[in-house]
């Protein structure tokens, strides 16, 4: 069975990272920004998985499992914070309010 070169995975991951970064910079809705962060996390994860397959100790695979867990925690807490922000200010756009400091 012929296998896929690591480079192909890296290309897809570079594309995902760039798209996530663009979403992060372009959108003003906070939930959209969070989705961009998720794309960036998954691009990093794909890199870890692709490289760990030539590594007999598989450290990248274990690290990517923990990245998954941390990403989920970040998502849950961020959505809870967004909910509170919406309750207090009735808006969740990132440029809606200016800091007073």
């Amino acid at each position: 069975m012929t296998d896929i070169p690591v480079l192909y995975f890296l290309w897809v991951s570079a594309f995902l990272f760039a798209t996530g970064l663009t979403i992060l910079l372009l959108k003003k809705n906070t939930i959209f920004v969070l989705m961009g962060i998720e794309l960036i996390l998954n691009a990093a994860n794909l890199n870890l998985v692709a490289f760990s397959k030539n590594d007999p100790s598989m450290q990248g695979l274990y690290l990517s499992l923990f990245v998954l867990v941390v990403g989920v925690c970040e998502m849950a807490i961020a959505l809870a914070i967004i909910l509170q922000v919406y309750r207090n200010y009735r808006a969740i756009d990132v440029d809606q309010f200016k800091s007073e400091f």
């Binding site: 760039a18 663009t22 372009l26 440029d95």
Partner: peptide, 18 residues
């Protein structure tokens, strides 16, 4: 519908990153 900032700068940054 959500709002967006101007497209030029984020798209060029993303493209150059890619």
């Amino acid at each position: 519908m959500t709002r967006e900032s101007s497209r030029l700068l984020p798209l060029s940054i993303g493209l150059s990153f890619f």
